[in-house]
Design a protein around this nucleic acid. Structure first.
Length: 599
RNA sequence: GCCCACAUAGCUCAGUUGGUUAGAGCGCGUCCUUGGUAAGGACGAGGUCACCGGUUCAAAUCCGGUUGUGGGCUCCA
């Protein structure tokens, strides 16, 4: 199972590249200070692919400024000043920073633990409060580039002032820098938003609303394949299907805790009596579901449950709507309406470890089917939470134990859980290196309490079940987005919207080719016929650009011999073969869920 | 939600300092062509320059707002 370690940049402090980028950030800050003397400095760390520095200034940085700053940086680098580390007393440090009116740096200073030294680094005319380490001289920073400027809250806190962040990157050699920039360019080509449009998979409409995806026929076909596969995977594992409504009374969302803890992300529907989205009237207004769990709880509670019934595993491809804040949406990876492959498992306290473990297996199996790399995180209680710390201790401990028992490498995401329980998340990276949560397994002792759920144990006593929330793909939308990028639009045959396209060489062969298409359809494949009066080269090109797995050429030779000339997206020209041979090859590929990548 | 940028034909983009009938390639339609593994040719139809308001004799172009998009921040499947 390709679980990979989450990269931890601060673990590489002594690596030359880390120091190089840290130093580049420093040099950039010096350049900015010299060009814009009134800036106040925030923080400027190295990051995975480069570095940034945050500045507070009334001036708004433009792309032209970036060029000027780069120029200035080159001058500083040419001076080849040494980076000099200097420890200072706190009093001295405060005085120095106060003199320069560096309010953000003062804040950082006051947060440095008393037993740690306060260090400054000076290179030439520029001195900065900094932990280091740096390279020896500014002259070592040769191959760098400033990339973009954006806003960033001071310390990442929304209520703090917004600073301007300049991003850049630096490498040891010019070749590495160029290779990196090329890599980014390549990655942009596999952006699912771009490929989604080019391959006719999905789209968004300004008139419909942000974050509301429309699947076009090819996208809907792909979606359908995923759904059918996942449906079967659930049945096989002892899950039972459910179908629950898209909206429930606001009162019920109050009971579930969503009204108090999740309200900002919910859409409310105006009722007949004049309530509104802003002022839902308890008892008579409705909330569109942002989660499926409360609905599943109702089904659980619809009859008396015995310990003999447990575990009960309900699943639903449930479409939910969340009022994500404007500016957070990103193609299919972050939308307002999405369908989760959601399930809720109700079990006894004795059963949940095994159930969680089975869920993890389900996740591994699913992600491994596509060959994704992913890392696993344990997310713990947030500040705004439901229930007591004792309950959270139990739930967090439970998940941690399963992960450790199984030897799954994982990291901790502190305060990152949802309001009702801790969770194990599976994180997949998109083509541009951004992390997205896919699978999630959440252990919940709170909602069973809140909803007064029970089962009857062997002694006839009423007991509280444990609830596990889990999604394997996460959501179909996000998963498809990641899938597009992972495969660069060239999907495994079993998922490909069009599996094979028939290309008659001339118009005279259109009827015969239509017959071939019919036979392939009969054999259960998704087929298209390209009967335009275009030359073969053109049809091959169009089919290849559309990343169709198999192209079947029908010329006079084929029509006479009853064979087909096959061209594979991955293997090129395969020559002539019987239709039955092609059919067998494709069937095998579908059954094995073969997942190839071109590069 | 916040900072910055952007919005011209179905798609990718031109459109000089505000000044006649807003252009190109791809795609689409008609016709010609019937060509053996990555783009055959001709003609043609497509645009209230995202939307609303303002400045001006005159706005795709300047200003304000709205919606949407992109890059980040924050937040989250």
């Amino acid at each position: 199972m390709p679980v990979v370690q989450k990269p931890d940049i601060s673990a590489h402090k002594d690596l030359f590249l880390y120091r190089l980028r840290h130093s580049a950030s420093h040099i950039m800050a010096q350049a900015v200070v010299e060009l814009f003397p009134d800036v106040k400095l925030g923080i400027g760390p190295p990051i995975e692919d480069g570095f940034y520095y945050d500045f507070d200034t009334p001036h708004t940085f433009t792309p032209d400024d970036l060029a000027r700053i780069e120029e200035k940086m080159r001058n500083i680098i040419a001076e080849d000043a040494a980076f000099v580390r200097e420890e200072k007393s706190r009093e001295e440090a405060v005085r120095l920073l106060q003199d320069r009116n560096e309010r953000y740096k003062l804040e950082i200073l006051s947060d440095i633990p008393a037993d740690e030294p306060v260090t400054f680094y000076t290179s030439g005319r520029f001195t900065d409060l900094c932990e280091g380490p740096h390279v020896e001289h500014t002259g070592e920073v040769r191959h760098f580039k400033l990339l973009k400027v954006s806003g960033a809250y001071w310390r990442g806190v929304e209520t703090n002032p917004m600073l301007q962040r300049i991003y850049g990157t630096a490498f040891e050699t010019e070749e590495e820098l160029r290779a990196y920039l090329r890599r980014v360019e390549e990655a942009e080509k596999r952006d699912h938003r771009k490929l989604g449009a080019e391959l006719g998979l999905f789209g968004f409409f300004e008139e419909a609303g942000a974050g509301l995806a429309f699947y076009y026929p090819k996208g809907a076909t792909l979606l359908r394949q995923l759904e059918e596969w996942m449906y079967g995977e659930h049945l096989r594992r002892g899950y039972e299907p459910l179908r629950t409504p898209h909206m429930l009374k606001t009162d019920f969302w109050k009971l579930s805790g969503h009204l108090d803890h999740y309200r900002d992300a919910m859409f409310f529907i105006k009722d007949m009596e004049g309530g509104s989205a802003d002022a839902p009237i308890p008892g008579i207004s409705y909330g569109v579901k942002p989660m499926n769990c409360p609905g599943h709880v109702l089904v659980y509670r619809s009859q008396t449950r015995s310990y003999r019934d447990l575990p009960i595993r309900y699943f639903e491809f449930g479409t939910v709507y969340r009022d994500e804040r404007g500016g957070t949406m990103r193609g299919l990876l972050r939308v307002r309406g999405f369908t989760q492959d959601d399930a809720h498992i109700f079990c006894t306290p004795e059963q949940y470890e095994e159930e969680v473990s089975a869920c993890l297996d389900f996740c591994f199996h699913t992600l491994d089917t596509f060959g994704f790399d992913y890392y696993v995180g344990l997310k713990t209680r947030p500040d705004d939470k439901l229930g007591s710390d004792e309950i959270w201790d139990m739930a967090e401990g439970g998940l941690e134990k399963v992960l450790k028992d199984r030897g799954v490498p994982f990291f901790y995401g502190h305060k990152d859980a949802t309001f009702y329980g801790p969770k194990v998340d599976f994180i997949v990276r998109d083509s541009l290196g951004r992390d997205w949560q896919g699978s999630t397994v959440q252990l919940d002792f709170n909602l069973p309490e809140r909803f007064g759920m029970e089962y009857v144990d062997a002694h006839g006593e009423a007991r509280r079940p444990v609830m596990i929330h889990r999604a394997i793909l996460g959501s179909f939308e996000r998963f498809i987005g990641l899938l597009v990028e992972e495969f660069n639009g060239a999907f495994p045959l079993w998922l490909a919207p069009v599996q094979v396209r028939v290309l008659p060489l001339t118009d005279e062969l259109n009827d015969y080719a239509a017959g071939v298409r019919g036979q392939l359809q009969e054999a259960g494949f998704r087929v298209e016929l390209d009967d335009r009066s275009e030359k073969l080269g053109k049809k091959i090109r169009d089919g290849t650009v559309q990343k169709i797995p198999y192209l079947v050429v029908i010329g006079k030779r084929e029509a006479e011999s009853g064979k087909v000339a096959v061209r594979s997206y991955f293997d090129g020209d395969l020559g002539a073969m019987e239709l039955s041979q092609l059919s067998a090859r494709m069937k095998d590929e579908v059954e094995r869920k073969l997942a190839r990548r071109k590069d």
